[in-house]
Design a protein around this nucleic acid. Structure first.
Lengths: 223, 223
DNA sequence: AGATGTGAATGAGTTCACAGCT
DNA sequence: AGCTGTGAACTCATTCACATCT
């Protein structure tokens, strides 16, 4: 069991998906589920679910299946979602706003504690659960707010400098949404998320379908 | 060469990245680049760049490297980015707005031609290059605008029904940003992009760092 | 019986080493 | 000499078959 060090990013992402599905089942009042039922309901692979889970212990009951609450709890601790992560959004334009308000960036294990921007128009704004500060105050904001994860939602040109500033300010990890390949330092983990790449992927399979006289693509992926 | 059918999504995404890097070099006035130079500049693998490119022909010059313009052109056609794709945004909340205005969803090969929403507040709004219609008019909007790719930026609960509506309306491909596992029909390719999963991944590596006494994570990924 | 957990088999993807051009 | 293109080695990931447990 365990081997918590060497989980592959692919497995890790699937575990997140499983947890999302289990939460969904919890809300629906389902208490037990088999790998097969889970797979069918959410378009996954039963084999893979079992393989992925087995890597970390025996969470199921043979002949029966998995206890939904129990498994959800296990995955939550495994993924490290049993505590709070404080987020700082860098760049409160359209994207920063969307991330802050939408899609669970302010739910469960994650809380947006502050934002910074360089536009005086936006600085000082009260966003309800957090406020917008000037980017020059970054270090102080990180310290006072206790922010651990920085979310870059700035234009491509500004991405690297803001990553560097976040590192200097003592942030612990960074998620970059700017369409730029930011270079990380040894100490502060970074994940580049390029939204446009997904669009290009979809466009490609669409085009493939066209070229071979409309039969529909194959892919159904992840983000 | 070619084998354009069986490109793996991973390769495909890397090709998009290469193209992005080449465009960057073009702007900087660089005319020739070796796989190694490209790899060093953008934190890639020279071996992999060559392998990926070689799959489709001989784009380089041995002993010299690649012609930047030339390779960019090749990749553009290869990825199918040599024509225009018309986008329709479903859901003009924070996220829909952000996608429409930011990050290249309205640049190059992609153009947002229309949006739909069910909130009367938003319906009728003129977004400059496109307008917001009521979701009930979806079929007519798709037909008139010639939209091919639908971008779902609605709450999780509404994702599946809106995908189905898009399919019924004759859309050709869908990109889903709602945190829900939408099921695709055979004909209309779908890509689910879950923004939160990236956050969970970063949180995980951050926590790993903590648990083994701060050494910084390893991962440096993709979206 | 029925579903999990696991080792073995298959397949995909990446890295390497070097042959082949320029 | 230098850098690409490629077949072979290797590593990683997924799928399968079945032993194991309730």
């Amino acid at each position: 069991m365990s081997d918590l060090e060497g989980i592959s990013p692919l497995t890790l992402n699937r575990l997140s998906v499983y947890l999302r599905c289990l939460r969904h089942l919890q809300v629906a009042g389902v208490r037990r589920v088999s790998s097969q039922a889970l797979a069918e309901r959410y378009l996954l692979s039963a084999h893979q679910i079992r393989k992925d889970l087995a890597q970390f212990g025996e969470f199921g009951i043979r002949g029966v299946g998995y206890d939904v609450d129990d498994l959800a709890q296990h995955l939550t601790t495994l993924l490290g979602l049993d505590r709070l992560y404080r987020l700082l959004i860098v760049g409160m334009g359209n994207l920063g706003n969307a991330l802050a308000h939408y899609l669970g960036f302010n739910q469960g294990a994650f809380r947006v504690v502050a934002a910074v921007d360089r536009d005086p128009e936006r600085v000082g704004r009260d966003m309800g659960t957090f406020r917008v500060y000037h980017v020059d105050e970054l270090a102080a904001v990180v310290r006072r707010s206790g922010a651990e994860i920085g979310v870059l939602a700035v234009p491509a040109e500004a991405a690297q400098e803001n990553y560097d500033a976040l590192v200097a300010a003592g942030i612990r990890a960074v998620l970059n949404f700017a369409p730029a390949r930011v270079k990380r330092t040894a100490e502060v983990p970074l994940k580049n998320v390029d939204l446009r790449i997904n669009l290009e992927e979809v466009a490609f399979v669409l085009r493939q379908g066209e070229l071979r006289g409309e039969a529909g693509g194959e892919g159904e992926g992840e983000g």
